[in-house]
Amino acid sequence: MSTLAHDSKYQLVTRRLGLWLFILSESMIFIALLFTRFLMQGVYRPEELNQTLGLGITTILLISSFTANRAEVRIAQGDRTGFLRNLAITIILGLVFLVVVVAVEWPEALHFAPPSTGYGTLFFAITGMHAFHVLTGLIILIIIFFQGKRGQYSPEDHWGAESGVVYWHFVDVVWIFVYPILYLFGP
């Protein structure tokens, strides 16, 4: 039976809309958490918070979004090497981000804002929830990388790669809100 629903172009838009609804739903978690930040602590921010380190990891995530976009354009062009190269850079940058947050940022924050304080609670919960999304995004991108290496994805059909990249951008968008609200806002 051939119907509109089976048309690959039509199906692609269906999947894109589905992914967007998922993103809309996921955003609600962060909206709830970021609102809680204002409800609990207003715009209070501890003096010791390292804003420059925050700027550093923001930059890393931003560059990774840039390379993720390049990877998507490359596979649409049919340039597999360029796709894999850009994807690899994205994954490495994502890993660096994750390691810096968990291994540098968190131990530092434990001293001046432990989770038993109001700000520490928010800081760890929000960056933790974001880090979890980074982690899932990374797993997805790594799977896509190896699939690409095995020869999957073509200029006509690369929904898998596209969806992973869009999800990765979503993780970046979340950080675009998290960084000012946690690191920059202040009395």
């Binding site: 809680t36 409800l39 609990m40 602590q41 989770p115 038993s116 304080t117 109001g118 520490g120 609670t121 760890f124 919960a125």
Partner: peptide, 9 residues
């Protein structure tokens, strides 16, 4: 964490 500790906001 201290989301529901009344003295932490």
């Amino acid at each position: 964490t201290a989301f529901f500790a009344p003295d932490q906001g």
